[in-house]
Design a protein around this nucleic acid. Sequence first.
DNA 1: TCGTTATGAATGAATG
DNA 2: CATTCATTCATAACGA
Lengths: 176, 176
Amino acid sequence: MEEGMSDFCFRGENVGGNRGSATGTKCGRWNPTTEQAKLLTQLFSSGLRTPSTDQIQKISNQLSFYGKIESKNVFYWFQNHKARERQKRRKVDKDVIRTENSISMNFFTQNFTQLYHDSEPEKVTETLQLFPLNSFGESESNMKVHASDCRDNTMFTYTEEEQMNHPPLDLRLSFM
Amino acid sequence: MEEGMSDFCFRGENVGGNRGSATGTKCGRWNPTTEQAKLLTQLFSSGLRTPSTDQIQKISNQLSFYGKIESKNVFYWFQNHKARERQKRRKVDKDVIRTENSISMNFFTQNFTQLYHDSEPEKVTETLQLFPLNSFGESESNMKVHASDCRDNTMFTYTEEEQMNHPPLDLRLSFM
DNA sequence: TCGTTATGAATGAATG
DNA sequence: CATTCATTCATAACGA
């Protein structure tokens, strides 16, 4: 679930070329290739959160070039990524609050007194949004805008060998 | 389990410093101190299986007294503990079944009983003093995380529904 | 020191 | 959308 805590893991691609799973997975479930993951992440950070079935289809088509993939994989990917990002933030936020409270308390008298009032505020008072994404239900229109912002080529930075294996497919968000 | 390892992890230096258990490893991933482990185990054996976000938070707060810990750790702990218990039981069941098959069915009833020997969540509906709060002088709002505090009854109803966990071959995914 | 085991962490896939 | 489950990956802990 959570991601990017204190560890940063980079899943290596399975050179084999074919796909199915990056690592030596028993091919039971889909596992994004590095390229697929890269693009998906790219889309996500560009603001895309809940792609429409249409978008999913297109994304899936694009990604299929890098390996076996079904649209439902894309669907789930976004679903999970979004949920986990949210969930993570929630947990972390609360932990931070807890930490702040506890450090401001005397270690020994730190009875569990107020530690229990439900710290619920989920209010996003933050304003450091890197992207103009509406934290909540984003609409199709918004996604389009963001998606188009994704026109940069950063997502095409391949690494040596991959460069060879993958023809220069234009992955610019042509869909939508 | 051996082949295909192609993941490289770069551990962001982590202060660590926790660990109270055995070896003092100052490493990246959390490891429960003996006290933390003890309490978690108590909660688990008291019937708690899937703590809600709130409960996780509370538990985490409590455990933080015994050492560095984040709510996600608690979350994972329960997730893993439950999964592995289930997994273990599944394996045992399988073995039993295999045994039944290889042996005359005359022993069926006998073994059948054994199939459920596995102690499922003891219905400890009794309030348990899981935390040594007394040691710090109780305060009015002093809340103990007894199993009873978890009004989420679901945690006490995992008696057997989970075991009948047969993947409903129902792929009603009708994407696009 | 190395192989194994236990377990923390992550994530794909569902389900309600 | 949140919550849960299964399976896998990674590594700390441990035994020889």
